[in-house]
Simulated scan of single mutants.
Amino acid sequence: MALAIEARALRRTYRTRTGWLNPRRVEIDAVRGVDLDVRRGELFGLLGPNGAGKTTTIKLLNTLLIPTAGSARVCGFDVVTQTREVRRRIGYVFGGDRGLYDRLSALDNLRYFAELYGVPAAAQKRRIGELLELVGLTGRERDRVEGYSRGMRQRLHIARGLLHEPEVLFLDEPSIGVDPVAARELRSTVAGLAATGTTVLLTTHYMAEAEELCDRIAVIAGGEIQALGTADELKHYAQGRRVLEVEAFGVTDAQVQGIAALPGVRAAGVEVIGAGQVLTVASEAAVDVQSDVLRALDGVRLGRVTARQPTLEDAYVAIVNGVDRPSVAVAA
């Protein structure tokens, strides 16, 4: 099996100071021994909460950070000792507005970055045209980027990252802050990359995006890989549970805590959606908690009550909730 990315016991420790009156030097383990294999041509997802180590892991793999310990190879080249060879073979796209020149057109942006990436002049016109077609910006390439929507900017970011025909493309939360319509177009663009044979490592907070796009998914939390497999394989982490969703208006934190303490309940949480709330309760499969939950919500205006099978998001929550935070050591 040909591998595009190999990581063994990858670790990154940051040294910083904490406190004002009595400052102390501390060490924070952002990544704590990550082992990872990504196959060539695979669309691989990396999921995790904020501060879990996703972006740090990507920066270690694409040579922007040096590992404190462990090793990693991309396309067979070591990320520390063969940095130049790695960079020739990778592209990096991150979420947000940085990395483009607003007062230039998309075409001029791509011409500029093509020069930086060393794309031969004779091949630039063909390559830029192919990429504009791939990301759906043909016809808007002469417009200034300052007039682009967030979704269009992100698609232009992807085109920029593909200019030098990288073997591996790192996509770090590319759909963050993008509206649903633009996010759908962005997912279509990313899915099209796999057809070209490009290896893609994607980080995201959106479970539906990961489930739709990724061949395999790793969940990182506390700086370590906690689970790895296909979306269906990861759902096994939520097996033995049933999920109850209750539309409500006015659920208090005290009520949520009381529901979480009910016999058979594994987890409970509330998400605010518009003017209402959705209470999600995960319980043991053999225990029907619906009547107890509704009694605990006495006095709360309720809407639809739904029981369903666990999803990838439920499995993700189950995995992440069982993980300790990254360690912090006080330096001598």
Results as ranks from 00 to 15, higher is better:
233 E>H: 07
246 V>D: 06
75 C>A: 14
124 Q>H: 05
162 L>K: 03
219 V>M: 02
145 V>W: 00
61 L>T: 01
173 E>G: 11
191 A>G: 14
311 T>E: 03
3 L>T: 13
323 V>S: 04
236 H>L: 12
324 D>H: 13
101 Y>K: 10
21 L>K: 05
222 G>W: 04
189 T>E: 12
204 T>R: 04
211 E>Q: 12
209 E>Y: 12
202 L>R: 09
33 G>C: 05
116 L>I: 15
140 R>W: 11
194 A>V: 12
75 C>E: 14
88 R>E: 14
204 T>Q: 08
135 V>W: 02
72 A>E: 03
89 R>M: 04
245 E>G: 07
244 L>R: 09
87 R>S: 07
208 A>P: 02
233 E>V: 10
235 K>S: 04
202 L>E: 07
252 T>W: 10
283 S>V: 06
76 G>W: 03
241 R>Y: 08
164 H>S: 10
93 V>Q: 08
47 L>G: 09
97 D>T: 14
18 T>Y: 00
133 E>A: 13
198 T>E: 12
313 E>Y: 03
234 L>R: 08
26 V>M: 05
211 E>N: 11
260 A>M: 07
15 R>F: 11
243 V>N: 09
149 S>Y: 00
80 V>S: 11
49 P>C: 05
86 V>E: 03
225 I>P: 09
144 R>M: 07
32 R>A: 15
185 E>Y: 12
91 G>K: 08
319 I>Y: 03
74 V>I: 08
47 L>P: 06
160 R>P: 09
280 T>G: 00
34 V>I: 15
153 R>I: 00
207 M>S: 04
47 L>V: 02
88 R>N: 11
272 V>E: 12
178 V>A: 11
103 R>C: 04
258 G>A: 15
88 R>Q: 15
76 G>S: 04
31 V>A: 08
253 D>E: 15
